[in-house]
Design a protein around this nucleic acid. Structure first.
Length: 915
DNA sequence: GCAAGGTC
């Protein structure tokens, strides 16, 4: 159907694509360039034949979306309408001022063309932009023949194939985006106006910004992002440290030292751990059960996409995702790296990977590595792995131009270019190879293992300096070999809360839940900082501000999961339905907006929840004299923190009204003393306690609620939280302390209307029973080893009624704090030598004979037989060799039950063992 | 003064 030459207007999504495609199609022959109305969007001209039809091709571009969506004028002013009206207020698309010149170029060129070919990116947004271009062009030329070019990479064959097989634009794809835009706008604008006006009227909000500019925005991406941060923060607060025990063993020989860890990991039940430990100590000979040697590979990363670039730049350089994208964009604009906004993490088989490596051979730092890669004799090359993502539009991020660093580059430019190059070189390299040895030993039926690793070939790790693979040597062992452990200890530990979310963690959460796109995730993160919803520390970890926490808490109290990723997930599913033609845009819009409007109206009805949550952190603006004792920001120091020894401990009142004295170093330091629930008022005085340390410990004037304390206690009390105050201790025990209900944590299904808790659990040491620290931080400890612990006398319950059967020292009565036995009392010997332990309730149980002497304590001493006093000092090294002796000083030989002393069985099967 | 999505 060859005939008269037709003029074809071709439009790409960005200038770089217009240039690339024009260059490919023209084969760089007769390609002319001229200026358009917009300085960024050139117009390329050349001749081409589409299916035999001679064409004069004009190739230009837009810069992403050409149009924006906006409410009609009369709804634009914040006070012009009820925010609820924004769910049905008319909206229209328009070309914003900064895109007008692009529009004019399109109009001018479209007038003289017969065909319009759309070269927008082949995703939903691209299809939507295509329809924006169609609207602009067909408005001035109704006779345009509109076609779509589908291409998945800027590669010659693909582009030529694409132009010879033009298709129709996909309206369903564009519709899905239209609907998303409209829903985002209506939800965002309505909630933002509502909550901003509500809060600004009600509270004094310090946000570091001018009150006039304070906007409390709500958005379907920014709020779930904030939700991730708050949820983690709550998880940390709700964490209840739990003590656990593990048995550890080391063995030193001429070849070095091996640390064996218990293959059970750890136990939360102290008694069980002691019983097993005792079995080990009775028969301490270790027998090597298994020696496994295997080759281990550490693979290089997948090719680099945007999210990985952001995560790695954050991890390796602590660069913010926003800065990373800004620098990457500049490197891309200057031609040094490929397009930085890509989901793709696998290279097309058509990419000339060798050519990219070749370019890097001259680099002073990694040039030699690039040369080795290209040397077939070095066998370093490996085809890159496939990460499983492909946006069909862009390749993984890789270097496109060699540079030893340009003079105008900042440090960040240098770092990011280096990361892109090294990552690429790593991708085409062999994995690192290590030889791993795992040794398993058996002590009295318990298994322990130790491992060592030798790196045989670093391979990709030679160039990818950001990753490492630790190696450690252990002595050689053979199966059946026997030895006496150098140390065998029962150690305690405590479970720790997870850390605050890092930027890399946050990006992972967003990626996993589909919040934002690779090109926008960093924007959402930045928005949270700009809105003062969250802060980021030097380690790139995020903490919600009071404002951020209050907003999430308020909506959560209403029972709405507006701060969860579900809303976005549902919208994403609906968008997919629309883009596949299974649901119309009208149906999606109507149902979604109806639901959201109902949610909005309900939220507004329940605004008291939002106000309540805000009132926890902020002062009411319409009340001058708050009757609350401690408002946000007020800091009243009670004492220096003895745990972290860095910060002060201050008096605080939690959301539930309970008082506590907590460390300002929270959440890094979790030292806290909860005060009795019956306290109605607490004021720090200038009086200083004469006995508690570290001081000064300021006395607090308490007022108790009369009805909540026994009649023999005074309503007013000047007390000390340092541990010396019997009255405070007694009232804490009688009235209880701290939160009344568990704090919300991940997946909490707490019904709306719950009182809120911070639940910074009261720290109570299970050894000395003092508040303010856990047993692993107990000052009474001499070392972390259970075998060498000295227990402080319990001030409250120190009245020992029984004595240790080994040393005769009066025992202390303590309270178990493990999940299985919480609240149960037991006796232990305060001596560091004895491992005496007995449940209080078992003493009254006649089945066990009622005698504590049935317990067979064990001690470990060094060979000098000095009674063990020479070992276990806080910093002292372990002795070179240790033999185990029984309580009587005889070498341990026979097996005896720890509970009843019977040599016929072990304690774990003892018929007399307590529950 | 609101959203999220493109991109110079």
């Amino acid at each position: 159907m060859a005939g008269r030459t037709v003029n074809v207007l071709n439009v790409a999504e960005k200038p770089s694509v217009a240039k690339s495609v024009a260059t490919i199609l023209s084969r760089n022959q007769g390609l002319r360039v001229r200026e358009g109305r917009s300085r960024y969007n050139k117009i390329f001209e050349f001749n081409y034949a589409i299916r035999g039809q001679p064409c004069h091709m004009l190739f230009t571009s837009v810069i992403g979306h050409l149009m924006e969506l906006e409410f009609e004028e009369r709804y634009r002013k914040w006070l012009s309408c009820d925010p609820a009206d924004l769910y049905h207020a008319p909206v229209h698309k328009f070309v914003p001022e900064d895109k007008k010149d692009i529009k004019r170029t399109l109009e001018e060129e479209a007038r003289r063309c017969q065909w319009l070919v759309l070269w927008l990116d082949c995703d939903r947004e691209g299809e939507n932009i295509a329809f924006e271009v169609v609207e602009v062009c067909t408005t001035v030329n109704r006779h345009l023949n509109v076609k779509r070019a589908r291409f998945s990479a800027l590669i010659d064959r693909e582009i030529h194939q694409s132009v010879q097989n033009l298709v129709e634009p996909n309206k369903w794809f564009a519709d899905a985006v239209d609907a998303r835009q409209e829903i985002d706008l209506r939800i965002g604008a309505s909630f933002t106006r509502f909550q901003t006006m509500l809060m600004k009227d009600s509270f004094i909000i310090e946000s570091g910004t001018d009150d006039r500019n304070l906007v409390l925005s709500y958005g379907p991406c920014q709020f779930p992002t904030l939700g991730f941060i708050v949820e983690r923060y709550w998880e940390i607060q709700a964490h209840e440290p739990e003590e656990f025990w593990s048995i550890n063993c080391s063995h030193k020989s001429d070849e070095g030292i091996a640390s064996f860890s218990w293959m059970r990991g750890h136990l939360f039940d102290y008694t069980c751990a002691v019983i097993i430990y005792e079995m080990c100590v009775q028969e301490p000979t270790a027998t090597v059960a298994k020696v496994r040697q295997q080759e281990k590979l550490k693979y290089p990363p997948h090719p680099l996409n945007t999210i990985e670039l952001e995560k790695r730049a954050s991890r390796y350089f602590r660069m913010s995702s926003e800065q990373t994208m800004k620098v990457a964009e500049e490197l891309y604009q200057a031609g040094f790296i490929s397009y930085p906004r890509t989901e793709t993490d696998s290279f097309s088989s058509r990419t000339d990977l060798h050519a990219i490596v070749q370019e890097q051979q001259a680099h002073p730092d990694w040039g030699a590595y690039a040369q080795r890669l290209l040397d077939p004799g070095a066998s370093l090359w490996r085809n890159p792995s496939n990460g499983g993502h492909d946006d069909k539009a862009h390749p993984p991020i890789h270097p496109t131009k060699f540079s030893i660093g340009e003079s105008r580059w900042s440090q960040d430019h240098r770092k990011l270019y280096e990361l892109v190059v090294r990552h690429f070189l790593a991708c085409v390299s062999q994995p690192a190879v290590g030889a791993e040895t795992i040794v398993e030993i058996d002590i009295a039926g318990e298994l322990f293992s130790a491992s060592g690793r030798v790196i045989l070939a670093k391979n990709y790790l030679d160039v990818y300096r950001f990753e490492s693979w630790g190696g450690s040597m252990i002595p050689t062992y053979t199966v059946g070999q026997q030895f006496i452990p150098t140390t065998l200890t029962l150690d305690s530990g405590v479970t720790r809360p997870p850390p605050l979310l890092s930027e890399a963690d946050l990006l992972s959460c967003m990626d996993k839940e589909g919040i934002g796109t690779d090109a926008t995730m960093h924007d959402h993160i930045k928005k949270l900082l700009d809105r003062f919803y969250a802060t980021k520390d030097a380690n790139t970890r995020f903490t919600p501000t009071n404002l951020g926490e209050a907003l999430v808490m308020g909506y959560d109290d209403m029972g709405y999961k507006l701060w969860k990723p579900y809303l976005r997930a549902v919208m994403e599913r609906d968008m997919k339905e629309v883009s596949e033609g299974n649901k119309t845009k009208a149906v999606f819009l109507a149902s979604s907006l109806q639901q959201m409007k109902a949610c909005f109206l309900d939220a507004r009805l329940n605004k008291a929840k939002l106000l309540e949550a805000m009132a926890i952190f902020f002062e009411r603006s319409n009340r001058s004299g708050s009757n609350e004792i401690h408002t946000a920001g007020e800091v009243v120091v009670v004492r220096p923190c003895g745990l972290c020894q860095e910060s002060d401990m201050v008096l605080k009142q939690n959301r539930d009204g309970n008082f506590m004295v907590g460390c300002l170093g929270f959440p890094q330091c979790r030292n806290a003393v909860w005060l009795p629930r019956s306290v109605s008022e607490a004021t720090v005085t200038t009086n200083i306690c004469t006995s508690c340390s570290p001081g000064p410990v300021y006395l607090i004037q308490f007022k108790f609620r009369q009805l909540e304390i026994p009649p023999n206690y005074n309503v007013n009390h000047l007390g000390c939280i340092g541990g010396c105050d019997e009255i405070l201790t007694q009232l804490s025990e009688i009235c209880g302390t701290g939160p009344r209900v568990p704090a919300r944590g991940r997946g909490s299904t707490a019904p709306p209307g719950n009182a809120h808790q911070t639940n910074m659990r009261q720290a109570v040491c299970t050894y000395c029973q003092e508040t303010g620290h856990f047993s692993n931080d107990c000052p009474s400890h001499i070392s972390g080893s259970r075998n060498a612990q000295r227990h402080g006398m319990n001030q409250r319950t120190g009245e020992a009624s029984i004595s240790c059967n080994t040393c005769g020292t009066p025992c202390i009565l303590r309270t178990a704090n493990t999940s299985n036995n919480r609240g149960r009392k037991f006796y232990t010997c305060p001596s560091q030598e004895c491992n005496f332990f007995v449940w209080e309730d078992s003493l009254n149980n006649s089945a066990g004979g009622g005698s504590v002497t049935r317990s067979n304590s064990i001690r470990a001493s060094n060979t000098s037989r000095n009674g063990g006093r020479g070992r276990g000092s806080r910093n002292g090294p372990h002795p070179a060799s240790v033999t185990f002796v029984s309580a009587t000083g005889d070498p341990v030989s026979g097996r005896r039950c720890f509970v009843c002393g019977d040599p016929s069985h072990f304690a774990n099967v003892c018929p007399n063992r307590g529950a």
